[in-house]
Nucleic acid binder design. Sequence first.
DNA 1: AAGCAAAACTAACAACTGTTAGTGGAAGAA
DNA 2: TTCTTCCACTAACAGTTGTTAGTTTTGCTT
Lengths: 197, 197
Amino acid sequence: MAEALSNLSRKEQVIRKAAELFKEKGYSAASMRDLAQKLGIEAASLYSHIKSKEEILRTLCFDMATDFRASLSEVEKKKVTASEKLRLGIIGHVQVMARDLTASAVFMNEHRHLSQPYLRDFLLLRINYINRFKTIIEDGISSGDFRKDIDTKLSVMTLFSSLNWMPAWFSPDSTIEPEKLGQQLADMLINGLKQNR
Amino acid sequence: MAEALSNLSRKEQVIRKAAELFKEKGYSAASMRDLAQKLGIEAASLYSHIKSKEEILRTLCFDMATDFRASLSEVEKKKVTASEKLRLGIIGHVQVMARDLTASAVFMNEHRHLSQPYLRDFLLLRINYINRFKTIIEDGISSGDFRKDIDTKLSVMTLFSSLNWMPAWFSPDSTIEPEKLGQQLADMLINGLKQNR
DNA sequence: AAGCAAAACTAACAACTGTTAGTGGAAGAA
DNA sequence: TTCTTCCACTAACAGTTGTTAGTTTTGCTT
């Protein structure tokens, strides 16, 4: 079973290059011949490593989903105030993204090209994740941590919109570390732009 | 030249259907035969109305860009505080989006499939628009309207991320009107989630 | 040296891509 | 009627798509 390792390693090499390509051109516009060229092989050779183009997309999307959920589960365990929990949740999300910005971008923008039933499964995972954040915000409102007049649905969508576009504009050679960035983002969303009196 | 009108009307019908299709499937995955089918005609017949597939995308992207810029120009004229200007800018942006959510989604997600030199032009328009918002925020910091410790680049990217995902989740049959939504969004970004004190 | 598995190759497929050329019908204007 | 304009059609093009079958090369392990 030593072949499993080297196989995985080469397979992962293919998947990583695919992620770059899918991010750059989008899933549909990226052809298997493009991908092969990036790896210096023929298109048909890809199929020694993967079953299909969509299998690559599935792997990318569901692996990221797993990481996001694991991060949130850690945060939910902690016994802290809602606003602190939200802060930690945001930082965790940013850190997972930063660990693989390329896959994150694909996860975000290309998941819609999954076919059924995978698309359905993916969307269910996603809505569950979002709802868990929504619960944190609702708890925060109950406890007086957050304002009572905010619309939780709007808040949570705004939150994810902000988070999810990060891969598009965050460059890894930036001086700012992901955790710092997460902190700032959380601060901005929680406290707003306005001077507090 | 009376034909220009009726031609335009039919052409616009094609473009609107194309926008729906591009939003649904993405530009690359949407074929001209798909589009033709939606209109109940043959694919080749489309070329009586448009020059190419990309011409449709160009029209959608640049028409939206024009509307966004016009809205912001109106706001910039007003003599109000920076935070008020930001609020108005956000509301304006949301209203332009709400006027055509489908085109907005295409504008946002599919513009990268423009070929050169149109892509370059588009991105220049976009960065100019963003920078004008950034200026408003900087003015707000100088005047003491906004906190001095915020990162303007991060703020403005967060702002646009929040705004731009609206077409993805806002449904036109929602009870909330666009202006109200813009108000709430602006309020959330400016004041944050947290209870003041 | 022999064997084995991983990973590449060539050749080809059926389906689909955007687009052009040329044609014809329908409707209103002259 | 005849002319014109719009709008659709059929047929076909050259190129690209994901994928397969079958074969050969490569490099390690015995």
